[in-house]
Design a protein around this nucleic acid. Structure first.
Lengths: 332, 332
DNA sequence: TTTATTTAATAAACCGGTTTAGTAAATCGG
DNA sequence: CCGATTTACTAAACCGGTTTATTAAATAAA
């Protein structure tokens, strides 16, 4: 059964394509198309298994009902989980989702966004790899409706769905302190990212409030590829200094997962003594050794807000405001 | 800077849109467009930041350069990792990827595929939720180029990228036997899935070859949602029978991850005695208790073959054959 | 010098929809 | 019974590209 178009149906029914278009879009009554004609058209469409060509529709209407979901790495379960919700909420609003991973490469990110714009996406939900607000402004040049998440630059007036990074970090740090820890290591990455900056400041502020001296030796930066080897070295550093860390805060799930791996493989004797804390949550934190106190991000809510904000922006180009959601601290 | 079209450029340059189209597609020389004209057109395009409208191009050429990647759940790291590679290889060939999750629901799968067809995707890479070959045939009705993976029905003549499920399962089982285990539990799910069927038969065949009596009490089916509670019950069953299991084979990563969770939370005293084995690999298998012997699927290769086969099918509609790749057994 | 060929372009159809403006015929109100 | 309104439907423009067939002018060959 070859594909059938609106033109063919018009021909078969002996009416104009206008009429067919009206009827198949459910505007038959409104447009005063007789019942007989409507039935004839619908009958032909059904029997030929008509399916609208959305590409043609997009071109004609100037709207593709497609959005982009652009993140550093879709195989990271944090982004994967959000992707699943994004998909769901997008579908509810009639949008399909194009997914792309930037690999933390700004040039690639720009290329991807240009490609998606050429494909006439209506908007994009973006966890940008950009190191700062001005860079991001260039990247997202043009006026593509955009909602930022995970990597949010407040300096910009753009729409965003953020979380309380600083506060969550404080809460995690406080929890470690309450459990008697005073030497708290921090394993961080590429500290120019705004969420990471905030997480670091939450850690620092809490130590200060508690009158614990800040020791910059306790803070280790891992490069973006966060290879297992560099995590191992970081742990080595934290555990073998003169006054070693007794607890470690990891600033995201990948760091923590690698940390757990490294400690089990290189310092298994330490697993009972140490306490870990991490941003994002992973199932394995429930039973890993050491146990991990974590700050669970509200993935479902993040996705929901991203989609709602984006759709609002697409429809009304109404400038609403960004939002900040709260993590849930899981104490194990 | 408002969007500029090929028509506007033609107007500004004082030439026809045909000429502009030729030049901007790099066919200026071939089409004998004078250097002067070419330069003028390219200059205008650049200064106005021209970007082709792929929707229009799609409509005109009857090709969207978009493919679908449809799986049960994109947040499952197994699919997530493959998605990342799919993305990469697709991009190399000029395709963008639309991702959708079926949630193991055939009706939803059909809806998604219809939606994607309406969007004129050129082909789809599909891990189908269908329970059998005839069902899948209906689902994929129409003649959308399709490559199946993970959920492959050999009865069909379709293109597929499969793995050696039965053999891998045998290898895992053999490994457990070689380590002295004779009571090997099997935690499986919805056994109508072809890959699961094959994995079960690999287990059974190996037991038989080794002269170990098959005990159907050792085989437990978990329902598709594989809730943690049902895993707990399965473990309870396997560990508290008169002649309990000393090793357990999990037929996919989600089952294994939940199994590790359950054993650590409900039977922590057993973690040192038991040995686990699982399909797919997860980083946590390296250090979890119990350790997990696993069959790592070649994600990169799977993705590469999926894309290559799909492109071949799209371009030539040449009927090539399916392929079966091998897992890597990781012995811990 | 005439004809054949190459150069440099273009008009127009086409892809498959949406939408505006309009028309002829039927019905209604007075 | 005539003008106004409603009913039922359509022509044609438009979205932004690609592609085929054609043309006029310039150059080459005979």
């Amino acid at each position: 059964m070859a594909k059938i178009s609106i033109n063919k149906i018009a021909e078969l029914a002996g009416v104009s394509k206008t009429t067919v278009s009206f009827v198949l879009n459910g505007r038959g009554d409104e447009k005063n198309i007789s019942l007989k004609t409507q039935e004839k058209i619908i009958g032909i469409a059904k029997s030929h298994n008509y399916q609208a060509n959305y590409v043609a529709r997009s071109l004609s209407m100037g709207k593709s009902y497609t959005i982009g979901f652009v993140v550093p790495d879709i195989s990271n379960p944090f982004y994967g989980k959000i992707a699943r919700y994004i998909e769901q909420y997008a579908e509810e609003k009639g949008y399909s989702v194009m997914v792309a991973s930037t690999g933390e490469d700004i040039k690639k990110e720009r290329k991807i966004l240009n490609e998606l714009k050429a494909r006439q996406i209506d908007g994009v939900i973006l966890a940008s790899a950009s190191p700062n607000a001005s860079e991001i402004k260039q990247t997202s040049s043009g006026n593509l409706p955009t909602v930022y998440f995970d990597r949010v630059f407040l300096e910009q007036q753009n729409l965003y769905v953020d979380i309380n990074n600083s506060e969550s970090s404080s809460q995690l740090t406080q929890l470690l302190i309450n459990k008697g820890h005073k030497r708290i290591g921090l394993i961080s990455l590429s500290s120019y990212l705004p969420n990471i900056k905030q997480r670091i400041s939450g850690y620092k502020n809490t130590l200060e409030n508690e009158g614990i001296e800040l020791d910059s030796e306790l803070i280790v930066d891992i490069d973006l590829s966060h290879k297992k080897e560099s995590i191992k070295q970081a742990l080595e550093h934290l555990l073998q200094m003169e006054n070693p860390a007794t607890a470690i805060l990891f600033l995201n799930n990948v760091l923590a997962a690698n940390g757990i791996w490294a400690i089990n493989n290189y310092y298994p004797e330490q697993t009972d003594k140490l306490l870990f804390a991490s941003f994002d949550n992973l199932d394995l934190f429930d039973y890993s050794k050491p146990k991990v106190v974590s700050a669970l991000q509200p993935n479902n809510e993040i996705a929901k807000h991203c989609i709602n904000m984006l759709c609002k922006q697409i429809d009304d180009s109404e400038e609403s405001e960004g939002i900040q959601l709260k993590t849930t601290i899981i104490n194990r």
